[in-house]
Simulated assay, not measured.
Amino acid sequence: MAVRVRKVYPFTPTFRQVASLYEAAFPACERLPLWQLSWNGLKKGQEFLAYYDKQTFIGLTYTIYTDSLVYLLFLAVEESKQSQGYGSQILAQVKKEAGVCPCVLTIEPMDDPNVSNRAQRLKRLAFYEKNGYQALNHFYFEGTERYQILTTDKTLSLVALENALAKTFLGKHGVRVD
Rank of each mutant, 00 (worst) to 15 (best):
A76V: 10
Y62A: 04
H138K: 14
N117T: 05
N40C: 11
T144Y: 08
G41F: 00
C29T: 14
T61C: 12
G171R: 00
K96T: 13
C29H: 09
N137I: 06
K123A: 15
I64L: 14
R124H: 04
V94D: 13
E108H: 02
T152K: 09
S38K: 01
I58W: 02
G87V: 02
G99V: 05
T63D: 11
S68Y: 08
G99H: 00
K123P: 06
Q84I: 01
L49F: 06
P10E: 07
V115W: 00
D178K: 15
E47K: 15
P109F: 05
G85Y: 00
P102M: 03
Q134D: 06
S83L: 11
W35Q: 12
S38Y: 02
F127G: 02
L165Y: 04
L75P: 01
D111R: 11
Y62Q: 09
Y52Q: 05
L150N: 05
S116G: 08
Q134I: 06
I149E: 00
A50V: 04
A25C: 12
A50P: 12
A2L: 14
Y140A: 02
P33G: 05
L136Y: 01
F57Y: 08
G45N: 07
F11T: 09
L158F: 13
L73K: 12
H173C: 11
G87H: 07
A164Q: 01
P102R: 06
A98F: 00
G87K: 07
K54R: 13
A24K: 15
T66W: 01
V177W: 00
K7M: 10
D53H: 15
V94C: 13
K154T: 15
L60R: 01
A119W: 08
R121P: 09
Q46C: 14
A92D: 14
G171S: 04
G174T: 10
Y51Q: 03
M1V: 13
C101P: 07
W35Y: 11
L73R: 12
G85I: 00
A164Y: 05
G143N: 07
K43D: 12
G143V: 02
A92V: 06
Q93V: 04
K44E: 14
I149K: 02
V115L: 01
I107C: 08
C29V: 13
W39I: 12
Y52C: 07
I90H: 07
S157E: 03
Y22C: 12
P102L: 02
T144K: 12
L122I: 12
E108F: 07
L165N: 08
A19G: 10
A2V: 13
A2P: 03
L37N: 04
V77G: 00
L69D: 04
V8M: 00
